[in-house]
Write a protein that binds this DNA or RNA. Sequence first.
DNA 1: TTGTCGGCCGATCGCCGACAA
DNA 2: TTGTCGGCGATCGGCCGACAA
Lengths: 221, 221
Amino acid sequence: MDTKQSLEELMPPTQMVRKGKWGKEDLNSELWHACAGPLVSLPQVAGLVYYFPQGHSEQVAVSTKRTGTSYIPSYPNLPSQIMCWVHNVKLHTDKETDEIYAQITLQPVNTEKDVFPTPGFGPKPSKHPSEFFCKTLTASDTSTHGGFSVPRRAAEKLFPRLDYTMQPPSQELVVRDLHDNTWTFRHIYRGQPKRHLLTTGWSLFVGAKRLRAGDFVLFIR
Amino acid sequence: MDTKQSLEELMPPTQMVRKGKWGKEDLNSELWHACAGPLVSLPQVAGLVYYFPQGHSEQVAVSTKRTGTSYIPSYPNLPSQIMCWVHNVKLHTDKETDEIYAQITLQPVNTEKDVFPTPGFGPKPSKHPSEFFCKTLTASDTSTHGGFSVPRRAAEKLFPRLDYTMQPPSQELVVRDLHDNTWTFRHIYRGQPKRHLLTTGWSLFVGAKRLRAGDFVLFIR
DNA sequence: TTGTCGGCCGATCGCCGACAA
DNA sequence: TTGTCGGCGATCGGCCGACAA
């Protein structure tokens, strides 16, 4: 199972956000979109969209692996697309896997005229964070043998600047995940050649999130 | 959370049964009743029972801790007791906590005459195992520091007899839980004064079942 | 009779730079 | 630049009898 881990830096100390409950809407919305990627944009509440029943049905058939007697009903007389009014859009994250998804409540309408027109319609682009970094975890990253190797650019762009007069330079990174849980990592710059590492605290995170090589983490500022 | 752990000895090697799926009905039924205790007896399928809606509603209200907007509906015109025909009785165990419960399917009837009479009605006592032992776990039992201290009477009555010519006397105990999972424990008789202990394998069981001091285990033969 | 503890030893964790891809 | 490894010290797991409740 691939698990996307998102990390958000709001301000020093660094914060990491993981999929979860939405306490601060702005914060988590940005994180959610960071995980979803730039190609995903959600419809606006009170906007008009087309709902494609067959496409949805096929998605459900693939994503739910039912066994035995259950089956997917088909509705031959259903139109291929249904104009709908967007009642509500709610961002979610799976509490176990941190996988993100959105819950969109739709109400069918016959024509556009059935809906009270609202100025400013149309696909408004969602806010995607400009400062982010995503890394696929290596075997060394998830092993109990050591910590997390931070790509240089990620550390320099997103993490609070280290005091390089220290020997070795290091700091405590306090980070929040999407569930509003906080995690503390030791960020150190050491080794020959020099590299950024997350050491103390990282293994707790790997264990709690059950991360495996191939999963990925996402940092945002 | 208190978790009841039941252990069943069928024949040497010793077996332990924990709440779970019902492969062998006889085996698990006996275990289920061992966990439920002697005061619990279930109605027979095709028998007649009285259903008390208010009592059931109060039970549900207590056991489900709903927060916020949900509420328990009340039906003022419902009779206090409803005569029912027992369609089905199914034994269950929670896969996470091993807590036992029964699912009883009822159908309301107006009078006894609506039901085709069957000879041999009445509360037939459920089979309760005669040879069993139950122990509340101590801090030492669940600690990572050591194993499980077996009460002398339990070991002598339920476990296969040790070969006391060995130094120290010990054997491998293979045990099955209610989910039909098997567990292997080293059973040894040692120490000064001598006592029965479960050592190797016990900590795996404690970890997998997330047992805490205060939970209890139940052995049956 | 049995719950808790100190002692002890081996396994694992986790921090380090070496080295190479 | 960064993934993997050997080295190593610290911690933890888990088996033992001592001791006392």
